[in-house]
Write a protein that binds this DNA or RNA. Structure first.
Lengths: 216, 216
DNA sequence: CCAAAAAATGAATGATGATTCATTTGTTTG
DNA sequence: CAAACAAATGAATCATCATTCATTTTTTGG
């Protein structure tokens, strides 16, 4: 009865699978999904091209796995920020926005890939879940804020999406790979990151809390 | 001395060039740039594939031409809304936002293609100009608003970008092709378009005018 | 109608990149 | 070590399109 998978082999396989995920994660952070070639993935992981297919059935499957892992991490960070904040619901939302924004700016290409890059259906499917997670997180917080009267009544689901959308585009969008950063009319250059985050977060918080002026 | 381009031919060529631009415009509105094949363009215009290259040197060149035309139109509409509005700068900005939003929602895929879809460098180049046009438009208006004290002091350029980004992502992003519309937690379904626009515009105006609360 | 010139055609070419698979290399147990 | 099997390899295959170009069709002035 020669050969039966031993723990040594099993561990090596686990490690290689892990290295593949890591490789894709790195590459996506550098160029976005679209620009990541299977050959590059293999090279980065120190494997042959064909080997990749022993671990993941297809490009879409591999990328979806990476996507899922990356988004779960992001959502968890934001969830934590929300949970860890004492005070009004507004304080929680603000902390969450700040966390979201800071992480997005630290890894702009990844953020862009997760939020906005067009991806194949398998990955898009995972993105649906991702966005829902965020929306749910913020929606709940906003609803609590409305209950506490720190936010005026508003369609919480829509506001949540608006906020997520606003941050994603305002921060990640301009920094999408290959896009010239200086297109913000030079503003980005002058204003430091933190300050920029302040501005966008303030914009969002004001959007949520409002002056109650009835627009139109 | 047989054959010299006559006005009949010249007009036919102009018409065909026009039909090509129109064809691409239609197709982009249906699927976005990425998904538009040269063969489809030719078919839609009623020409052979090779013929397209007698009018435009390359896919990038053709698409850039379409992009330029489409964006010029969009910017012009917004500019008009801004100019046609009497009252404070805030009124103008609101009218402009509303125009922008309404047009984006009427042609969501086109809007997404113009604002956010990854495109080849030639087109990206044109997009730079496009975003700058918008940013300049809004930035000027916001600066005027600050002067009139209807907006609190703020980095106008950044706010302008935030507003454009917020609208683009909040309205066009969710409606990107192939993305399931119902992902807005069902909100979109229930709320009519105009009402949705109201909400997003209010969000933006509140973000701009603010309650002056010092966020952190 | 003819010759000259341009325009149009669409099948062939070429580039890119995911995926496959015949072959090689590595592991395990008797 | 050898037999038995799995894992790894990477060059070949296949699919997708943009682009080209030899050939055909149109147009024009004589």
């Amino acid at each position: 009865m020669p050969y039966r998978e031993t723990s040594q082999v099993r561990e090596r396989k686990t490690a290689r699978r892990e290295r593949l995920l890591r490789a894709v994660w790195e590459l996506v952070g550098e160029r976005g999904f679209e620009q990541v070639r299977m050959v590059d993935v293999a090279a980065r992981a120190g494997l042959a091209t064909g080997t990749v297919y022993r671990y993941f059935g297809s490009r879409g499957e591999l990328f979806a796995a990476v996507f899922q892992r990356a988004t779960a991490l992001e959502v968890e960070h934001v969830r934590q920020a929300l949970a860890d904040t004492s005070g009004t619901a507004a304080d929680g939302v603000e902390a969450a926005l700040r966390t979201f924004a800071r992480r997005a700016m630290r890894a702009p290409v990844l953020a862009w890939s997760l939020m906005a890059e067009p991806v194949d259906p398998r990955v898009e499917q995972a993105r649906l879940v991702y966005r829902r997670s965020y929306a749910r997180l913020f929606q709940t917080a906003i609803e609590r804020g409305i209950g506490e009267s720190v936010f005026p009544p508003q369609p919480a689901g829509l506001s949540a999406n608006a906020v997520v959308g606003a941050l994603a585009e305002a921060l990640a969008g301009p920094l999408a790979p290959g896009r010239d950063v200086d297109h913000q009319a030079g503003a980005v250059q002058a204003i430091a990151l933190e300050s920029m985050i302040d501005t966008v977060v303030r914009f969002c918080m004001q959007g949520l809390t409002g002056t109650m002026r009835t627009v139109k």
